[in-house]
Design a protein around this nucleic acid. Structure first.
Lengths: 135, 135
DNA sequence: CTGAAAACTTACGTGAACGTCAATACGGTT
DNA sequence: AACCGTATTGACGTTCACGTAAGTTTTCAG
């Protein structure tokens, strides 16, 4: 519940480097407060970093992550803008769901492969069971 | 059911460039047959390309994809090696399952955000309902 | 056989996402 | 005030996954 983090605090917290945080700032993903020249990251910044890193692990580019974060803290005044934000959100949602489907397919493939190999293993163990493989 | 594909056939089939296929060969993901200097891709090569591209869409690096493809067509002689392949396969499987969990968390986040925005939209529509927002 | 299309090799270029290094600048301690 | 550790701003370097361009065969329709 500390109110603020230095750049090193946050870096250590997520096992990244300060350079990475500055880079995220360069591309507009973070806008930490400053006291003088020093960056002061808030709790909200910490959460954003967490979301950014999750996005990276899932294979999204920084611009894509920016889109999603924009959805997150969008507070549109105009109804037209609001509808647009919802539309983009639904689009992202569909993309994520497609990705889940593909990942599940990959998981099925890996499971099938494992089963196949397990079976081969059992066969090998059986044939070499009596050491002479007679009968 | 064509037996062979030229590099352009495969490129067009997956909407990629020949350069991409040569690159996958450079890094050891493909080893197409040759007639002279020309590459001839088999049905098996086509399937591998499909798997490679799925891996890319899911955010895996080419080396990571190579690992998984190695698991796919591994035919280990020694039981020790076989166990090792199974172990690596299970490891990848767990990684994929973690990734699925994270994606599902992201999906939940997106859904929550959409619901929130939908609600804001409804409120906006209601307050501007009678155009004067009386009572 | 010829000429165009397509494939090949070689090699340098590129955008994304940082890494790394140099040169300050600033903050707290003794 | 001097010192040391940490932060900051450039700015160039690096890896990955190809893009792109040049120059050279190879293939194939006419």
């Amino acid at each position: 519940m500390r109110r603020y983090y230095t750049i090193r605090d946050l870096a250590d917290l997520f096992d990244i480097t300060p350079r990475t945080l500055r880079h995220y700032e360069d591309v507009g993903l973070l806008k930490p407060a400053r006291q003088g020249a020093q960056r002061l990251y808030s709790e909200r910044d910490r959460v954003r970093v967490q979301l950014i890193l999750r996005g990276r692990r899932l294979g999204f580019s920084l611009p894509e992550i920016a889109e999603m974060l924009d959805l997150y803290d969008a507070d549109p005044t105009e109804i037209t803008q609001l509808r647009e934000v919802i539309r983009r959100g639904n689009e992202k949602l569909r993309q994520v769901e497609r990705q889940i489907s593909e990942l599940e397919a990959l998981r099925e493939d890996l499971i099938a492969m494992r089963n196949r190999l397990e079976q081969v293993l059992q066969e090998k163990l059986n044939t070499s069971e009596g050491k002479g493989c007679s009968d």
